[in-house]
């Protein structure tokens, strides 16, 4: 079951990347242009993690820690571009940077997942998503929200981090097993990359 879910996740990530490549011409002049590179990086991360574990026989935590830093920075940069609260997003960027520095000193890079930056970026993305929805609700673009690429991307992020936050915060208390935790993360990832794919597909309707 675990392997099947992992294959489904990879399929979703690859699908999102392929659709992003095919519809590049539709969003190449928008703030979402960075998502093509980001999705390529997602695929690269998964391949790197598999190579680490299967071929090099080393733990892949460092790959996912790198992913947390880069994906978090990317999301904040993207929100900086699409939201009007520029100073707030800059402050969030600073906060995220501090969390990375703290993790460097307090957590292990190669032997475990960085919890501090993960939790920080989760909260920050949730706040940014709320701000985005609030801005969208107060603009005339709400009339065509189903064909708004940003709407689907933010919904994907919101769903992922909304599900991820309780898992992240409660994990030490409910003693959830590693495999279950990974399974939940994979499930949330599948949903998020599904929304990312919809975000590119909705450009065709536009």
């Amino acid at each position: 079951m675990f392997t099947t879910t992992r294959i489904i996740l990879w399929s979703f990530q690859a699908l999102a990347f392929i659709v992003a490549v095919l519809l590049w011409h539709k969003y190449k002049n928008t703030p979402q242009r960075g998502f093509l590179g980001f999705l390529a990086f997602v695929v690269f991360t998964e391949v790197a993690a598999v190579v680490c574990v299967s071929m090099c026989h080393i733990k892949s935590y460092w790959v996912y820690n790198m992913f947390t830093v880069i994906s978090g920075s990317f999301y904040l940069y993207w929100f900086y571009q699409i939201l009007s609260y520029k100073k707030l997003i800059l402050a969030f960027g600073l906060l995220f940077f501090i969390s990375i520095v703290l993790a460097l000193f307090q957590e292990r890079f190669f032997l475990g997942l960085w919890r501090i930056p993960l939790t920080t970026i989760t909260v920050l993305v949730l706040i940014c998503s709320t701000l985005y929805f609030s801005e969208l609700l107060n603009s005339s673009r709400v009339i065509t929200f189903k064909t708004e690429q940003q709407f689907w991307l933010v919904t994907g992020l919101l769903i992922f981090y909304l599900g991820f936050l309780p898992l992240q915060l409660l994990m030490p208390y409910i003693k959830i097993k590693g495999a279950d935790y990974l399974f939940a993360i994979m499930l949330l990832n599948i949903i998020m990359y599904g929304f990312f794919t919809i975000s590119f597909l909705c450009l065709r309707k536009k």
Binding site: F133, T155, I159, L162, G163, I176, D180, I191
Partner: peptide, 25 residues
């Protein structure tokens, strides 16, 4: 069992969040 519980809660969360979002929008 624990996987099903996780699936149930995540699905519930996703459905509730989506319903809320789409109703509001």
């Amino acid at each position: 069992n624990s996987i099903f519980i996780i699936i149930f809660f995540i699905t519930l969360l996703v459905v509730l969040a989506l319903v809320f979002l789409f109703v509001v929008f």
